Amino acid sequence: MGDSHGILLIGHGTRDQRGTDEFFELGDRLASYLAGRSIVQPCLLEFQSPTIDEGWRRLLDAGAERITVSPLLLFAAGHAKSDIPDAVEAVARQTNTLDRIAGYSRPISRQSHMVDLVRERLIESI
């Protein structure tokens, strides 16, 4: 691939090991699904490693020429609007790679599939 694409998959981070394991399992599944098309690098905003800084640098080391920042967050609150873009911009400036930011994916929010899944979980709990 001449123009290698990376995905910086950003989770919030948690002190709960099960939640952390599930996030990295999702990253592994996405990496398998996108193999040959994109390099997927999971990282965490808070509490654990790899951090956003470490994840960005790993994508550069893997040869990513363009990087899509993909916060795996439910809503566009402070983390998605400022904390994550600020952290990405800081490491991109430090590594002189601002031009590699391909864009940001939107939060999951109220997408119809998400609403359907929430409805199913609510019915299961009744």
Score class of each variant (00 low, 15 high):
residue 71 P to C: 09
residue 43 C to M: 09
residue 83 D to R: 07
residue 22 E to P: 00
residue 79 H to R: 01
residue 56 W to I: 04
residue 82 S to Y: 10
residue 50 P to G: 13
residue 79 H to Y: 06
residue 66 R to P: 02
residue 31 A to S: 15
residue 26 L to R: 13
residue 80 A to D: 08
residue 122 L to A: 11
residue 58 R to N: 04
residue 60 L to F: 06
residue 66 R to H: 07
residue 53 D to L: 03
residue 15 R to N: 12
residue 102 A to K: 10
residue 71 P to Y: 12
residue 53 D to Y: 10
residue 90 A to D: 15
residue 44 L to W: 03
residue 121 R to V: 02
residue 89 E to H: 12
residue 113 H to I: 14
residue 95 T to S: 12
residue 58 R to V: 00
residue 50 P to C: 13
residue 125 S to P: 00
residue 5 H to Q: 11
residue 54 E to G: 02
residue 88 V to H: 02
residue 38 S to F: 09
residue 30 L to H: 06
residue 112 S to C: 11
residue 83 D to E: 12
residue 113 H to D: 15
residue 19 G to F: 00
residue 87 A to C: 07
residue 71 P to M: 11
residue 55 G to H: 05
residue 27 G to H: 03
residue 5 H to A: 02
residue 44 L to G: 00
residue 45 L to E: 03
residue 13 G to Q: 02
residue 10 I to E: 08
residue 87 A to S: 09
residue 75 F to K: 01
residue 117 L to K: 08
residue 83 D to V: 13
residue 41 Q to I: 04
residue 115 V to M: 11
residue 28 D to A: 14
residue 90 A to E: 15
residue 69 V to Q: 01
residue 95 T to E: 09
residue 20 T to W: 15
residue 26 L to H: 14
residue 74 L to F: 15
residue 42 P to F: 08
residue 44 L to R: 10
residue 62 A to K: 05
residue 105 S to E: 13
residue 109 S to R: 02
residue 79 H to N: 03
residue 56 W to N: 08
residue 12 H to N: 10
residue 50 P to V: 11
residue 92 A to C: 06
residue 37 R to L: 03
residue 48 Q to M: 07
residue 51 T to C: 08
residue 2 G to I: 06
residue 114 M to R: 07
residue 11 G to S: 02
residue 53 D to H: 14
residue 8 L to I: 10
residue 102 A to N: 11
residue 107 P to L: 06
residue 26 L to M: 15
residue 32 S to V: 02
residue 36 G to W: 04
residue 47 F to D: 05
residue 94 Q to D: 07
residue 40 V to W: 04
residue 25 E to D: 15
residue 44 L to D: 01
residue 48 Q to C: 09
residue 16 D to G: 05
residue 124 E to W: 04
residue 111 Q to F: 12
residue 63 G to W: 00
residue 40 V to K: 00
residue 111 Q to V: 07
residue 19 G to E: 01
